[in-house]
Nucleic acid binder design. Structure first.
Lengths: 205, 205
DNA sequence: TTTAGTTAACTAACCAGTTAGTTTAGTCAG
DNA sequence: CTGACTAAACTAACTGGTTAGTTAACTAAA
């Protein structure tokens, strides 16, 4: 029988999330992740084999969480417009629990998936597929006008990711006393995006 | 009189743009930038003092270009709705010329402006201010409904930046034969965002 | 001669990954 | 029950390659 782990890999993943979100794959330091997780660096290699392996494990876990959430919304029997509302609010809620998500998402997009293997890419792809499918169904039902589902996916989720990733830099602006760039409640922005998408997808112009 | 530079700092900036966009500040290697620019590494330190100095110079140049473009649109006498159309198309055009822009922008947002000094932050802030001002004017003129200008800025530009930054990763998806994620013409997406924003900002629901 | 521009070679620090060895929990023969 | 045995969990110290930044010598134009 294997001796139960005293150090859960979850603690390493949590520390890795902070480090990768703040500095990116190339800027992240394995020693720093180990120190933050209060774990010997070799334990990290014992559990995840390499820096890349750790990174991929983190992304798979994160993206599958997001995809599951959106698939559940798509499978529900709410009207299409309400599903879109829930997707937008759901992403904001997901990010509330997983603060590192937007930064890592934006970095990985910027990097062109350079550190991802086939399996991780497939997990990531499930996210736009779930949302795109939900939009397509709304079009088929006649609830939405005829838009490209991938376009709709991007126009509803990119602003949320951007807004929440930009929290720290808005704080920097605040320190410079720049008007009109003060932080505002997340819920207000969620509502704004819900209204925007309702108007963007409505069949009657 | 100073001997004219045989190696223009512009070539170093161009090489730096590629490297920083592809790998981020932490992942970028100064030697690689120097090699790509066909310049001795010491020349890079001669002109830009440090890796950080080079990075900041690149961002200042890029952001001031974007801000100037949007300020010109804001100052024109077109109707507000058309100004928004032009801002969206203008960003896409800017990125067409400066392919590295979306990746660097997304990374810097993710990093919370960690490598930026006061001057560079002010240059960056000019971008949302120009666009936000244009929206506010539209509201004052009664052409737009009452929305938060910063929210409008984010919802119109984040999807464009995201879409264009995601080009490489969409290519990866394509290699895995994932349906509905194939690359589509940029102009189609620009049109989609113009229509989305026209609907989102229209005063009559 | 002065000064901006340029270079190859150097260095001190850093960093991903390894290794060799220790501890601990569970197994099982007697 | 018990003590030898096993394998997973864990650690401190190390290694070899890399990296940002420096230096000192050189070139050529004014």
């Amino acid at each position: 029988m294997p001796r139960p782990a005293r150090v859960s890999p979850d603690r390493i993943l949590a520390a890795a999330a902070v480090e990768f979100a703040a500095r990116g794959f190339g800027g992240a330091r394995v020693d720093r992740i180990a120190r933050r997780a209060r774990v010997n660096k070799a334990m990290l290699y014992y559990h995840f084999k390499s820096k890349q392996g750790l990174y991929r494990a983190l992304l798979r876990r994160t993206f599958s969480l997001a995809a599951a959430r959106f698939q559940a919304i798509a499978a529900s029997d709410a009207p299409p417009a309400e599903k879109v509302d829930r997707v937008i609010a759901g992403l904001a809620a997901l990010i509330h629990d997983q603060e590192f998500f937007p930064a890592i998402m934006m970095r990985e997009v910027a990097e062109g998936g350079a550190h991802l293997d086939r399996e991780t890419l497939l997990t990531l792809a499930a996210v736009p597929r779930a949302v795109g499918g939900l939009v397509q169904q709304g079009i088929a039902e006649g609830a939405f006008r005829d838009v490209n589902p991938l376009f709709a996916y991007l126009s509803m989720l990119a602003p949320i990711v951007f807004y929440l990733a930009a929290g720290p830099i808005r704080k920097e602006f605040g320190a410079l006393h720049l008007e009109h760039l003060e932080p505002l409640p997340v819920d207000d922005f969620v509502q704004h995006m819900q209204e925007t998408m309702r108007r963007a997808l409505a069949r009657t112009s």
